[in-house]
Simulated assay, not measured.
Amino acid sequence: MRKIIRTLFVGFASLVALLALAGCSGNTGTDASPTSEAAPTSSAAAFPPSARYVADMTSADGKTMTIGISVDGGEVAAYACNGTDDEAWFFGKQTDGRIDLASRFRDTLRAELAGTDVTGDLTMNGVAYQFTAAPVSGEAGMYTAALDGVRASWVVREDGSAIGVQLNGTSGRDFEQAELQQLSDLQFRNEVRNKRQLQQAQQITRLANGSMSSKINGRDVTPTLVTGTFRLT
């Protein structure tokens, strides 16, 4: 008899435990729900297969600069100048809509595609600029021409106006590569970068046949449109 009662008691206790477990499994609180985190996404958009961008900018101390950027696939070329005595070329690649380049004269360009525009930071000769470059079409973009060791380069805006600088050479002494690496940024700017002989480029104009025309030291030249794959030799 005692054995039967004990067996019934054990069975009843098991039933109560099963009912309690079923009640717990019906809990719909958020603490019991598994959570998942969304994968982080990049804020930069992807560049079109081929595009050109132009922007005018002003530094905090009032200096002005204009930049043109050309992208073709993963290749990037950019040119910035103030129209009188300073310029910088940038060449390299864009990755995931971002650009991070340095010129041969230690200027820097960092930018990314934001919507349809390119926003970024430019540092030239120790001066910082911020810009938002809109896409351009038609004749707008960057152009360059060379003659007898002299190079002129321009940025043509969407409205047809242009700004350019002519590089005639350099008055600085030749440095060995090891010497250049030892120079601080300030020393490099004073001894190398700012020894270039720069002047305002002659105006660039559009001819009736659609080509561009200008002059270098009084002689006619035909500037060519700079694409993202362009590189200075």
Rank of each mutant, 00 (worst) to 15 (best):
K3R: 01
K3G: 00
R6Y: 06
T7L: 12
L8Y: 13
F12D: 08
F12P: 05
S14N: 09
S14L: 13
L15C: 12
A17Y: 13
L19S: 13
L21K: 10
L21H: 09
G23E: 12
G23N: 12
S25V: 15
S25N: 15
T28Y: 11
T28H: 11
A32F: 15
S33V: 14
S33W: 14
T35V: 10
T35C: 06
S36A: 04
A38I: 02
A38V: 03
A39H: 05
A39G: 06
S42Y: 07
S43E: 09
F47A: 02
P48W: 07
P49C: 06
R52M: 00
R52Q: 01
A55R: 04
M57G: 07
T58R: 07
S59I: 08
D61A: 04
G62P: 08
G62A: 09
K63W: 09
T64Y: 11
I69R: 05
G73F: 10
G73V: 11
G74Y: 02
V76H: 08
A77Y: 13
A78Y: 01
C81F: 12
C81Y: 11
N82L: 09
N82R: 09
D86I: 09
F90V: 00
Q94G: 07
R98E: 04
R98Y: 05
I99Y: 01
A102R: 01
R104G: 02
R106K: 00
D107F: 00
E112N: 06
E112V: 04
L113W: 01
L113N: 04
L113C: 05
G115A: 13
D117V: 05
V118C: 01
T119M: 03
T119A: 07
G120W: 02
L122S: 04
T123N: 04
M124R: 01
G126E: 14
Y129I: 03
S137C: 11
G138F: 15
E139D: 14
E139N: 08
G141S: 08
G141N: 02
G141V: 00
M142P: 14
M142L: 13
A145L: 12
L147I: 14
R151S: 14
A152E: 06
S153T: 08
W154T: 05
D159E: 13
G160Y: 09
S161C: 09
G164F: 04
V165T: 08
Q166M: 12
G169V: 11
S171M: 09
G172Q: 08
G172K: 13
A178P: 02
A178R: 11
E179V: 04
Q182T: 04
Q182N: 05
L186I: 10
L186C: 07
R189S: 09
N190A: 14
V192M: 07
V192Q: 06
V192S: 06
R193T: 10
K195H: 08
Q197S: 02
A201Q: 04
Q203D: 11
M212P: 01
S213Q: 15
N217M: 09
R219G: 11
R219P: 12
T222Q: 07
T222M: 05
V226H: 06
T229V: 11
F230G: 01
F230R: 02
R231L: 10
R231C: 07
T233A: 03
